[in-house]
């Protein structure tokens, strides 16, 4: 397309934005809100899944052994567990090691003497499963082995966490979809108002042989600009909010694993910007096609 046409189309697209300032603003804000929701849910989901993964990898089965077993019996139990299906690793922590570790953590050197010469720690076998879902089955099998005194794992907590994040994920998707739809409607409305107010102009343009794309492009530019401005507002809002939140979490809730990589944020922002431009363009294409029998 010739330079003259490109200039004309750009100017027309921006002029019609100006003509319907309030409708344009409403469209921009709706795009911004829906993209803020989209961006926050992506960030939220990334974080919950990181948290879930961290918890999952921390799910271990602790097997405490009977105090009276000798070394050979302990090794035998260890071997039996190793042969169960779905075992990632089996680590033995002897009672001596446990006492040593505890003494270390207490910064003392005379713990055994303080305890009157009796080591209260049992031998402990730590099992990591290949899949957190197998934990329950493994635990119940291990419980049946003689010489095993008790078996502990984070019973029930993991399941609840996963169900909760799954539920949040669906709510997030629904809310984002609803707002994206609202944004589409508002942009379409704004474009339709412009198409209406320029119906005669469009009629004449077609009459004198303006190409279809020539008629359509100003509206697409308009939608694109609305989407882009909305997206930039959303990116700024989400960017500032998340940076602030990250600083707060890292400084005072350091045990929560957060996603702070620049690359991840950049990806979210790019998705938001592309999403905004897509919404704007889509709304324009739909509303113009309806009006101009092309």
């Amino acid at each position: 397309m010739a330079f003259n046409s490109v200039r004309y189309i750009l100017v027309q697209g921006l002029v019609s934005l100006k003509r319907n300032v309030w409708l344009s603003l409403a469209s921009i804000l709706t795009v911004a809100v829906s993209l803020i929701l989209l961006g926050s849910s992506i960030i939220f989901l990334a974080n919950t899944s990181t948290i879930a993964k961290t918890f999952e990898s921390q799910v271990q089965i602790a097997v405490f052994l009977d105090d009276k077993l000798n070394d050979g019996q302990v090794t035998a139990i260890q071997n039996r567990i190793k042969n169960l299906p779905g075992i990632e690793s089996v680590t033995l922590t002897t009672k001596e090691q446990a006492l040593w570790d505890f003494q270390e953590s207490m910064s003392t050197t005379s713990l055994l003497e303080d305890l009157g010469g009796i080591n209260p720690f049992p031998d402990k076998i730590t099992i990591v499963a290949t899949d957190p879902k197998l934990v329950q089955g493994i635990a119940s099998q291990v419980e049946k082995i003689s010489g095993v005194e008790s078996v502990r794992y984070g019973q029930g907590i993991l399941e609840k966490l996963l169900a909760f994040t799954n539920w949040l994920r669906w709510i997030g998707v629904a809310v984002v979809a609803a707002f994206a739809f609202a944004a589409l409607l508002l942009i379409s409305l704004s474009i339709k108002t412009n198409v209406n107010s320029r119906e005669k102009e469009i009629q004449i343009m077609r009459l004198v042989g303006a190409s279809n794309s020539f008629v359509r492009w100003p509206f697409i530019i308009e939608g694109l600009v609305v989407g882009l401005i909305g997206a930039l507002i959303a990116v700024a809002a989400v960017g500032f909010a998340y940076t602030w939140l990250l600083q707060y979490i890292i400084s005072s809730l350091a045990f929560i694993p957060v996603v702070a990589s620049q690359q991840f944020l950049l990806m979210v922002f790019i998705i938001m910007i592309l999403g905004g431009m897509l919404m704007g363009t889509l709304a324009s294409v739909i509303s113009v096609r309806k009006f101009l029998r092309f």
């Binding site: 397309m1 003259n4 046409s5 004309y8 004449i204 004198v208 042989g209 303006a210 190409s211 020539f214």
Partner: peptide, 8 residues
Amino acid sequence: FALQVIGK
């Protein structure tokens, strides 16, 4: 207008 919209 008739000329502008055909890119003259």
